[in-house]
């Protein structure tokens, strides 16, 4: 019984550690590749008929400027993907934060996903 409890506790802790270390805990964020950029904030608001999103990205590295690409996927109320932005290249200098703001041009969008692809160095 005690053994089972210990195993379950270890599993729980491992899962939590994995979730924190991957940085992909939000359902709206998907990071592909090396996790060298942190998304410190992200939110979506309705502007008229259109969903507008803001994401704050941070490069915590003291030494290196990060270059990567990102894309936003737009979803309707049924969870179907309706549109996606083109991949956009972006650079964050070391120890800098930037805001990315995007708005869909399709009226019935209710949800989004930010996909970040960081190349290998």
């Amino acid at each position: 019984m005690l053994l089972t409890k210990n195993i379950l506790m270890s599993l729980g802790i491992s899962t939590l550690l994995l979730a924190f270390s991957s940085g992909c805990s939000s359902k709206n964020i998907n990071i592909i590749g090396k996790n060298r950029v942190e998304i410190t904030k992200n939110k979506g608001v309705k502007e008229g008929n259109f969903l507008k999103i803001m994401a704050e990205l941070e490069n915590n590295d003291n030494d290196e400027t990060e270059g990567f690409v990102y894309q936003i996927e737009w979803y309707d109320k049924n969870g179907f993907i309706k549109d996606a932005t083109p991949w956009k290249a972006i650079t964050i200098h070391k120890n800098q934060k930037i805001q990315v703001i995007e708005m869909t041009n399709i009226p019935d969008i209710v949800d989004y996903k930010i996909i970040i692809s960081v190349p290998n160095k």
């Binding site: 083109p86 991949w87 290249a89």
Partner: peptide
Amino acid sequence: GDAKAVET
């Protein structure tokens, strides 16, 4: 390829 990919 991905038509929306960044091309350099």
